[in-house]
Amino acid sequence: MDVKTYQARDLNKNIVASRKKKAIERLRQELGISVDQPKPGYGSTNSRNTARIFFRDPLLTSAITELNES
């Protein structure tokens, strides 16, 4: 990870925002799920079903989010 602080400030905010946007777009394209977006009348898209899809393939998920799988 490029930013290793709890709270991103100034220049790091742009890095974190672009990385988050890229991860959300790849999750939508490769796994077909929407994350961190409100659904009208339903609340958040972060649900149990999203988690099931998200963790079905831990290698792919770790590659998309650029995080270590363990």
Results as ranks from 00 to 15, higher is better:
Lys4Arg: 03
Met1Val: 02
Leu31Met: 14
Thr5Asn: 02
Gly41Cys: 09
Asp10Trp: 13
Ala17Leu: 09
Glu66Trp: 05
Thr65Leu: 12
Lys20Ile: 14
Ser62Thr: 11
Phe55Cys: 06
Pro38Ser: 12
Thr50Trp: 07
Gln29Lys: 13
Arg48Ser: 08
Val35Pro: 01
Arg28Gly: 12
Lys13Asn: 08
Lys13Thr: 08
Val35Ala: 03
Arg48His: 11
Gln29Trp: 09
Asn49Thr: 10
Gln37Pro: 09
Ala63Glu: 14
Tyr6Ala: 08
Arg26Gln: 14
Lys21Phe: 03
Ile64Ala: 00
Asp57Lys: 10
Ser44His: 03
Ala63Lys: 11
Val35Leu: 05
Arg48Lys: 08
Glu66Gly: 04
Gly43Met: 11
Gln37Gly: 13
Asn49Ile: 08
Val35Tyr: 00
Leu27Ile: 02
Asn68Thr: 12
Gln29Met: 10
Glu69Ile: 12
Ala17Thr: 05
Ser47Glu: 12
Arg28Asn: 05
Pro38Met: 15
Ala63Trp: 11
Leu59Thr: 15
Arg56Ser: 13
Phe54Gln: 05
Ser47Thr: 13
Gln29Glu: 13
Val16Tyr: 00
Ser70Thr: 10
Ala63Ile: 04
Ile53His: 07
Val35Lys: 01
Ser47Gln: 05
Ser62Met: 07
Gln7Leu: 06
Asn12Val: 04
Thr5Ser: 01
Val35Ile: 05
Arg52Asp: 12
Val35Asp: 02
Gly41Lys: 01
Asn46Ser: 13
Gln7Ser: 05
Ser70Cys: 14
Thr45Lys: 01
Glu69Met: 14
Glu69Phe: 12
Tyr6Lys: 07
Thr65Arg: 04
Phe54Thr: 01
Leu59Ala: 15
Ser44Met: 03
Asp36Met: 03
Gln37Cys: 11
Arg26Thr: 04
Arg48Trp: 13
Ala8Gly: 02
Phe55Val: 06
Asp2Leu: 15
Phe55Asp: 07
Arg52His: 11
Arg48Met: 09
Gly41Gln: 07
Leu60Trp: 07
Gln37Trp: 09
Thr45Glu: 03
Lys4Asn: 05
Ile24Phe: 14
Gln7Thr: 05
Ser47Met: 12
Ala51Gln: 07
Asp2Gly: 11
Asn68Trp: 14
Glu66Cys: 05
Lys4Pro: 02
Thr65Asn: 04
Ala17Tyr: 05
Leu11His: 09
Glu66Asp: 13
Glu69Ser: 13
Asp2Arg: 10
Thr65Asp: 07
Met1Cys: 09
Leu11Phe: 14
Ile24Gln: 10
Glu30Lys: 00
Gly32Asp: 00
Val3Trp: 00
Lys13Val: 06
Phe54Gly: 04
Asn46Tyr: 14
Gln7Trp: 04
Lys22Leu: 15
Ile24Asp: 08
Ala8Gln: 03
Ser70Arg: 15
Glu30His: 00
Leu11Ile: 12
Thr5Cys: 02
Ile64Lys: 01
Gln29Val: 06
Lys39Ala: 10
Gln29Arg: 03
Ala8Leu: 03
Ser44Gly: 04
Val16Leu: 03
Ala51Gly: 07
Ser34Met: 12
Arg56Ala: 15
Arg52Ile: 11
Ser44Leu: 04
Ala63Met: 06
Glu25Arg: 05
Arg56Tyr: 15
